[in-house]
Amino acid sequence: MNTRILIIHQSAIVAEGLQRLLQNSSLQLHDHLRMFNDPADITIHSGSNYIFITTSALFQSLYKMQLINFSESGYRFIQCITDPATSRDNLCLEAIYLDDSQNQVIEKVRNTINSFHPDKNAVISSLTDRETEVLKLVSLGNASKEIADKLNISTHTVITHRKNITEKLGIKSISGLTVYAILNKIIDTDELSIDDLI
């Protein structure tokens, strides 16, 4: 699931500055970073995680209810505090201050992104036994339906496994997965011709 970051701030300097800073970071946000003046302009796409970086004023505004709703939907808030006298609202996981360094800002955003995937920071690369089995069958050229039949599980489950495999390994294409499987001796190429597989 991708994470979208929306910056809602009436100060163009702050909003543009934040956008620049995050875009030039290693967070790989691509076009998932947007600026808004008015929260009413926001469209929420289902299937995405949202992080709102907002001005303090928003938490005392008419929009407070909407923010609470967003928060109950699992979306995260980072409060951008320009006036040192203001304190962080309870809805917010993190607060960014005007005198934060670039690294501090990025770290706070990264923490917030990671809060969507609590186990993502742990070692994720190793496949489970089931995933290895599925990977093996994929590499041997089986379609999801065939894999489901062979393993006696639903096609839907197979698709979920395949998604997780791709996410863990960073490999999407079938030929790419096959190369991985051969490199890691998940399939035995002694009896098979590599040319048929890839």
Partner: peptide
Amino acid sequence: SKLLDFKNIIIK
């Protein structure tokens, strides 16, 4: 995605 995979296989 093939190009991406190609890079990733070499890198990782």
